[in-house]
Design a binder for these strands. Structure first.
Length: 490
RNA sequence: GCCCCCAUCGUCUAGCCAGGUUAGGACAUCGCCCUUUCAAGGCGACGGCAGCGGUUCAAAUCCGCUUGGGGGCGCCA
């Protein structure tokens, strides 16, 4: 190939950005960056019934969150715009008309109902259905009659005889018998183009050199190749990347948990972890035994030849692990802000609660918890006690550590000890508690475990002394007192 | 049903194209160590070439068939 590499990601705005779409976008982006090419974003909104503006917003937002910035497309423009298919209608009509005049396409007046009926009949006979070309040779009179009836025609592409072969960059030659393809619609009765047609016109006009998309498009490719030929456009290279499946090996969907990028953002996954994980699904670098890659490292190493051909199962465990790796490296302020967003969304705090002191507190909480969670929202799931004085006592923790008859005494002593301790920091607290335990001839653990349950309601969590420091004297004393009352009541 | 694609541990994969490896790594799981719990970390274990035929001195690697999985067959994209 000559000239600049130009690739595109072309989502249809009918919902959120799906992980599969995100991965396709990522491969396109990485390929473009690797080859110093151009990454185009095009919105395929020709389905007026399902496309929404909110969805466009969500998709752009998701892409930006992942750091997959496009060089041409919505918001940034470019020389081959517009980048919304709904704004390119005259173009499709022009090329459709060209095809019709040249005999590559013809009008069809069959209604969906008629087609359905004929299709069922054919299938009932055990044959496979292809459009029966009823309208291929309509006379002008028949055509007028249909028009007078008020029918609006669609335009169908006439599939030629023979076979169609294309080169897939991952698989090599793929051939289809044209008999398998039927005369598909290129212009709907409302004048909108269909996917295959708009896609080809746009890819050609936008000078796309490499079409990188999910392998569910393999069977569309021969139709598109035929269109390129009929239109006299040069064919781009094709690379069909494998799909992402759920645990049950079916297409990833809501049934497998949420497949939307924004869901993971909202749960407190980091975009660089997401990008890393998605890249590693279906792609590996060869001999190099390495899992963690920055965006730059992905770009440096990326190659379509190293993309696998088989579908990949989305493994939340591994994403979680990878995210936890990034969590430990992230800037505390960044994690704090993510935590704050989550707390607000769950109505745990309000905007006015976010004082400088509280921000500082959240930062400390994040620093303490980030090694024990896999995503930021897990802090709220596992350690809501940081934000709620009315935290609950885990029955098992109560049973296992607070039941001992010596516990109230231990808590009372601790209360006294901590009330006057300065400074109220982890080393000082630790020294004091260990000393007290030693003087009483008991293990430090005799203090540590009851205190942890007392201030958090749980028997697992951060190191006790750090936990006490972060909670601060005021909360700690109040919580010990609360636990004493709780035990007294029982 | 028809067509297309695919096939290495439970999962993601290296190795395959240029046959000869104790088939490597990561996640998960399970042990042990460390330790105030959890987590992290260290060490270790478990676990795989879908099956059958060929070609070959030699097959995870090349070929064929079977089986299994996925995708498509819209006036959706």
């Amino acid at each position: 190939m000559s000239g600049t590499v130009r690739v595109r990601f072309a989502p249809s705005p009918t919902g959120f950005l799906h992980l599969g779409g995100a991965r396709t976008a990522l491969f396109n982006w990485a390929f473009a960056r690797k080859h110093h090419g151009v990454f185009v974003l095009r919105i395929e909104d020709t389905d007026v019934a399902r496309s929404t503006e909110e969805s466009v917003g969500v998709i752009l937002e998701s892409l930006k969150w992942l750091g997959l910035f496009w060089d041409e497309g919505p918001e940034v423009g470019g020389p081959y715009g517009p980048y919304f298919q709904s704004q390119r209608l005259p173009l499709y009509r022009e090329y459709a008309e060209k095809l019709r005049r040249a005999g590559f396409a013809y009008e069809c007046f069959c209604t969906p109902e008629e087609l359905k009926a004929r299709k069922e009949l054919v299938i009932a006979q055990g044959r496979s259905w292809r459009y029966d070309r009823k309208c291929l040779h309509l006379s002008e009179r028949e055509r007028q009659a249909f028009l007078e009836e008020g029918r609006k025609p669609v335009l169908r592409f006439r599939i030629p005889e023979g076979t169609t072969t294309f080169i897939d960059m991952l698989r090599g030659e793929v051939t289809f018998d044209n008999d398998e393809l039927d005369d598909f619609v290129i212009l709907k009765s409302d004048g909108m183009p269909t996917y295959n047609f708009a896609c080809v016109v746009d890819d050609a006009l936008m000078r796309i050199t490499h079409v990188i998309r999910g392998d569910d498009h393999i069977s569309n490719t021969p139709r598109q190749v035929l269109l390129y030929k009929a239109l006299g456009f040069p064919c781009p290279e094709f690379a069909h990347v494998p799909m992402i499946l759920g645990k049950d090996r079916t297409r990833l969907s809501k049934r497998h948990g949420s497949p939307s990028v924004t869901y993971y953002r909202d749960m407190g996954y980091l975009p660089e972890a997401m990008v890393n994980y998605l890249a590693r699904l279906s792609w590996a670098t060869g001999e190099e035994e390495k899992e963690i890659f920055t965006r730059e490292e992905i770009i440096e190493r990326f190659s379509l030849e190293q993309v696998t051909k088989h579908a990949a199962v989305f493994d939340l465990d591994k994403l979680n692990w990878m995210n936890s790796v990034y969590l430990r490296e992230a800037h505390p302020e960044r994690l704090r802000d993510i935590l704050l967003d989550i707390l607000k969304r769950h109505n745990v705090v309000r905007d006015e609660d976010c004082t400088p002191e509280f921000l500082e507190y959240c930062k400390k909480v994040v620093l303490l918890m980030r090694e024990r969670v896999r995503y930021v929202a897990q802090i709220l799931e596992d350690a809501a006690y940081f934000f709620k004085e009315a935290y609950e006592y885990d029955p098992q923790a109560v049973e296992a550590v607070l039941r001992d008859s010596g516990v109230p005494e231990i808590l009372r002593v601790s209360f006294e000890l901590l009330r006057d301790l300065t400074p109220f920091d982890a080393p000082t607290i630790e020294a004091a508690i260990r000393k007290e335990a030693e003087q009483r001839g008991v293990k430090a653990a005799q203090f540590i475990h009851p205190l942890r349950v007392a201030v958090s309601g749980k028997k697992v969590g951060p190191g006790l002394f750090e936990l006490l420091e972060v909670l601060g004297r005021e909360r700690v004393l109040a919580r010990i007192a609360r636990t004493l009352r709780f035990l007294g009541k029982e």
